[in-house]
Structure formats: structure tokens, C-alpha cells
Design a protein around this nucleic acid. Structure first.
Lengths: 342, 342
DNA sequence: TTTAATAATACAAACGGTTGTATTATTTAA
DNA sequence: TTAAATAATACAACCGTTTGTATTATTAAA
């Protein structure tokens, strides 16, 4: 193992060629201010000496890091990973890298991550707030520093100066439930999550709206708002719900993919035939819905596109540094992916 | 929206308090060289002015970015995401951030990412080589620059100077197949992947070893080496295999989670009862195996721990900058998670 | 007191680039 | 040939920190 060699820098090249650092810098930039023959000499020498520009020095000097900071609530959810893919692809095409941080579903972590990014590490931030996040001063602070911010997914409150990328939860649910109704379903169960959360409120709202529009009876006994955050306990809640249900539902609209799958699991165990006896629709089209037997009909979110859009909005902000930037709000459409469970 | 304000820097604080920049810097560092009363003044002023240190300047000056670069072949594989979680948790505890890059399963991208990291953005690199990666000069270059490197998962060849974190594929397969044999299975099918790849070679090796040890007849007709890289085509290959199989297998050992699930899907469709007629074991414990009906017995890899170990080794390298660093190789144990499919 | 020792602070170089301006070399026009 | 115009390059400040050394203020010892 050879000794670690000191990095080659502009100065080293300059000295060897007996030119100034400035000339070397410009030559490497293909700046027309340096003579062609000089440029070639410099490029050749740089190559032969194994020159690697120092990104940190560049950033300090230019005030740009070409890094986008991304904060997601968790890594182990395909939804966020897909969004990150979208961000990454778009970013890479525009010469940006992404620095992903997980807030571990904790407000504290979210704030800490934001503060870390605020230290000049990133040119802008794409953030999906945790469900815990109720105040937004930490985000507003960042914006006030002049750092561009784009929010996506779980947005409880619009933030002045930040762009927003959302899906239309309300409408998506409405469409799914409408679809069930039009198929002639009478007793459509609703499986939602903690009702304090905006997502679940909106999805519930869509359910109610569709039911009302078609004059369906809304039965409390067919509605479950899961309270648990823990996967394991969700399972139990859903089992209890279906095992003690006083009316036989003929359809289930579940507010997450997992709720849908857990429902199917329980229903199959109880002897229901899917889709003969009962139809099931889940929300979100990632993970297991497709390979499960039977495969599950889902509301597909344009996850990847969401990431792309977020990156696009952010980079747009980079390129118009003349404030004040107000906000763009993009609402993306979902679509119903029909499978065996309906 | 107020105007973007210029960032507060040490100089601003220094000027206000009529002290030198050095003193301010040291005061914020709690350096005992500054008087307590001065330090307090500085801290107070820094806070009231909303001072945020500039990470880039710090990095340039200190030569440390406190960022770990991570390169994985793809985002949309739970395996890598879990490893990243492990890396991130360990890194965060030791005051490092991670910058994740995907090589999109392409050697070119892998090399490009590596070069980007080489520009001084990261203090060290954790890399899982793509299946395409056959030469390692790009990695050796990085190591020669004195940048610590840890490799994990798909390592075809040990690289001098880099640490390695692996699982014992051979033994894991051996154990799984041995388990099936001990359950009295006679016709154990093997579903592997492209046999040129080291992983699949090792897993096949484990299968053969177990079969030989227990004097089982090895039948070519029960062995499939999938050729496809494409999920969709995998499905077809596996369907064809089982639909045309001349002998009824009573067990399947599949080299990936997905192969296992696809096998189950096909077998169920063909009327097999699992586990009554046939047992199935998959490799990898992430994703669907658990929720599938029936749930699938799997070889669980210590994915999260793998990430932690990788981060640990890397940070260890940071702390012993006296070369030459040779290499550490860590082989992690798997375990068989029993479920309904066996 | 006056000096020596030490505490507190200031100065300035360094990290490795970028970029505006000054300077020198070369070409063009008179 | 020489002045003016322009091309090529050099100089030096700057980005915001850290840190070794020099300087000044304070305290302790003689």
C-alpha cells in the first residue's frame, strides 16, 4: 500500500507549468480567456498529475454546493423511497446530488435535520413533514434564510414561501368509493387511521362525500379509525374490527396499502371469498398489493412523479433568486388500479 | 416576505463586540483560552444575531466534511434500504451524515458516483458494487487517494485496503437445504439466478454441499438458474420451469425472496398445497414473505446490522489515519425464519 | 515598584478554489 | 515604426472558518 499522497491542487499544476493559479483555474473551466495552447498544456498536466477538484473549496467560493437536502419521515416505506428516486433522477439530470435524511417520524429529528442543512450544506430542501409536525416555525426560519424549500405529501398547513406537492386525497377516496358503489356494493366498510391527521381526515371526507352523493346509509359499525402507529397493533385492531362486525360488509375501502392487506388477510381467514363475497381497495400502490393473492385493487399515487415535480420546483427556485418567492401548489392526480380484489 | 438577509458570520459578531474573529471562533468552541465572561458575551450575541456556522467553510478549514458517501445499486430494494438505515443510525450517533447515491445497477454510474465523492465531498465511502462491476480499479483509485472505503454485500473480489462486510451465502444455503432434508424432503428444487454471479454461485454451492452430505440425488431437472434481470421475465421463467417439470418436487429452495414468492404463486395456481404438498424457502427476509398467504419461510439476513458494521468499520478507519490500512473482513450469520410455507 | 510568569486576546496564514482588475505580450492600424 | 487595440496572463481579494504565533493585559513573585 503506497503512502497516501497529498492531493494535487491548482497551485501544483500552476507551478509545474510556470503559470498563475488563475490561468489554471480558467483553463480547466475552458474559459476563452486562456490561449488554446495553454489550455491544452494545463489539461494534459492536470490529467497526468491526477488532479481532482476540491468540491468543498469550490462550494465555499461559489456559494453553491449543488446538493439538495431531502428529509423523509422514514426509509422503510416504499412511498418515500419512490419519491426519492424521482427526486434523484431529476436532480442528477440537472447536476445536483441529494442528501437524504430520515426524521424517524419525530419532530425533533426533523428540526435537527433542518438545522443541519441550514448550515450551508445544501442549496435547498425537499421535506415531507412528520405526522407529529404541527408547528412550522423551523421551516419558516429556513425560508427566511433564503434557502428554497419544497414540501410534499403530508402537509397540514401551507407555508408561505415554500412550494407544495400534494395528491388529492379527498378526490382519490371519493373516486374509489364511487367505484364500489357503482359496482352495486351496499355495505362499504371504511378503514382509516388516526383521525387527527389531515391525510386520514381527507380520505374519510372522500368516503363520506361519495356515500352521501349516492344516498348510501353511513353506518358507524362499518367505520374503523385505527389508533395505532405500530404495525403489529394495527393488525390486531383490524382483526378485532372484522371479527366483531355486526353487519356483513360487501366492500372495504382501506386508507393505506397495509390496512387493505391486513383486511384481506383477516377476511380470508374468516372464510370470506375475495372478490366474490367482498371487494377490497387499498390506498397506495407500492409493496405487496400486486403480488398478494388475490392481488389488491389500489389507488395508485404518482409517487415517482411527485419526486420529480418537487425537484423541478426546487431547481426552479434556484434559478430565480430574486425574491420574494411566494408559493406554487401542485396537486397530483391518482388513479385506480384494478386488480383481483374487486 | 422579508428580504433575504445576508448570513451572519463570525466577523459580524466580532465587530459588534469589538473582539477578534479568532476569539469569537474559540468562544463558540468553548475553548478555555477565552475568558468565561467573553465567552458568554459571544454566545449571547451569536444567539441574538441568529448565527449559523457555515459548514462548508468549516469543512474546508478542517479537511473533514463529516459526511459518509453511500453507493447502493438501487433504491427500490428493501435490502439496501435496511442497510442504509443501519449505516445512518450508526453514523448519526457518531456525528456523521450520509449521502446516498444509487448506481442504478450500472457500472458507469457506480464509477461516476465514486468520482463525485472523490472530489472531497465525503470523508469515506460505503459501497455495494453492482453485479456489472468486474474490475475494481475505480475503487482502488479511491483508496489510493487515502479515502477510507468499506464494501458490502456483492463482493466478487477482495480489495486491498478496503474493509468488507458480507454474509455467508454458502453456509446459509447449506443450512436451509439441510433443514429441508431433515424434514424428509426428497426432491428439493433449486431456483437460482444468473450463475455467473458470485452470490448465486455460493448459494448453489451450499445447495449442492447439503445434498451431497446427505447423499441426495441431484437432479438437473429440479434446478433452475434464472437468466433474466427483469422482474417480469423472472416470473415467466419460473412458471415455465414448474409447468414443465418432469418430477414432482416436494420442496423448493429459492435464492431470493422474489424467486420464492413467484414459485409459491405458480405452485398455488397449479394446485399445489403449501406446505402440505411442498415446502418453500426464500432467501432474504424483507418485503412480502411475511404477509403472503401462506407466509414464507426465509433465510433472514442481518441487513440492518450489516449497515451498522459497515459504518463502524469506516469510522474506525477515520480514527486511525496512519496507514497502511490493510483490510477487515466481517462475515455475518444468517438465520432461518420458520413460517407457514414449511 | 519592577520583573517574570501567565492569562487573554489579536494577528495572520492557511484550507483550495473563483473572479474582478491590473499588467504584460501581441496584434492591428495609422 | 509607433500608438492604440486587444489578447493573454498575473495579481490579489474573497468565500468563512481554524489555529499557530505574536502581542498585550493581568497577576504573581521578588
Amino acid at each position: 500500500m503506497p503512502l497516501k499522497k497529498r492531493r494535487v491542487k491548482l497551485e501544483d499544476i500552476a507551478r509545474k507549468l510556470n503559470v498563475s493559479i488563475a490561468t489554471v483555474s480558467r483553463a480547466l473551466d475552458e474559459n476563452p480567456r486562456v490561449k488554446l495552447s495553454t489550455r491544452e498544456k494545463v489539461l494534459k498536466m492536470a490529467k497526468s498529475m491526477g488532479y481532482m477538484p476540491n468540491q468543498i473549496a469550490k462550494s465555499l467560493s461559489s456559494g453553491k454546493t449543488n446538493i439538495i437536502g431531502v428529509i423523509i419521515p422514514r426509509y422503510d416505506e416504499p412511498f418515500f423511497i419512490e419519491v426519492c428516486r424521482g427526486i434523484d433522477d431529476y436532480a442528477r439530470e440537472h447536476n445536483y446530488k441529494i442528501l437524504i435524511s430520515s426524521s424517524r417520524n419525530s419532530f425533533e429529528f426533523e428540526r435537527d435535520n433542518l438545522i443541519a442543512f441550514e448550515r450551508g450544506l445544501v442549496d435547498g430542501i425537499i421535506l415531507s413533514p412528520t405526522h407529529e409536525t404541527e408547528i412550522f416555525t423551523h421551516i419558516k426560519n429556513v425560508i427566511q434564510q433564503g434557502i428554497p424549500v419544497v414540501l410534499f405529501d403530508n402537509i397540514r398547513e401551507e407555508v408561505q414561501g415554500a412550494d407544495h406537492v400534494l395528491i388529492d386525497d379527498d378526490k382519490a377516496s371519493f373516486n374509489a368509493v364511487e367505484f364500489l358503489i357503482k359496482k352495486g356494493k351496499k355495505n362499504i366498510a371504511f378503514i382509516g387511521g388516526i383521525i387527527e391527521k389531515k391525510v386520514f381526515q381527507d380520505r374519510f371526507k372522500g368516503y363520506l362525500e361519495a356515500m352521501k352523493k349516492y344516498n348510501m346509509t353511513i353506518r358507524e359499525e362499518l367505520i374503523l379509525h385505527c389508533k395505532s402507529l405500530d404495525r403489529e397493533y394495527e393488525d390486531i385492531e383490524i382483526q378485532n374490527f372484522f371479527n366483531n362486525i355486526p353487519i356483513q360488509p360487501d366492500a372495504v375501502f382501506a386508507c393505506t396499502d397495509n390496512y387493505g392487506l391486513l383486511s384481506m388477510k383477516t377476511l380470508l381467514k374468516s372464510g370470506y371469498k375475495i372478490p366474490e363475497d367482498i371487494s377490497v381497495i387499498g390506498f397506495g400502490d407500492l409493496g405487496l398489493g400486486e403480488v398478494y393473492v388475490p392481488s389488491m385493487t389500489c389507488i395508485a399515487q404518482p409517487t415517482y412523479v411527485m419526486g420529480q415535480k418537487a425537484a423541478e420546483l426546487l431547481i426552479k427556485q434556484f434559478n430565480e433568486p430574486n425574491e420574494p418567492h411566494l408559493k406554487n401548489v401542485i396537486k397530483l392526480k391518482t388513479k385506480l388500479v384494478l386488480r383481483d380484489s374487486t
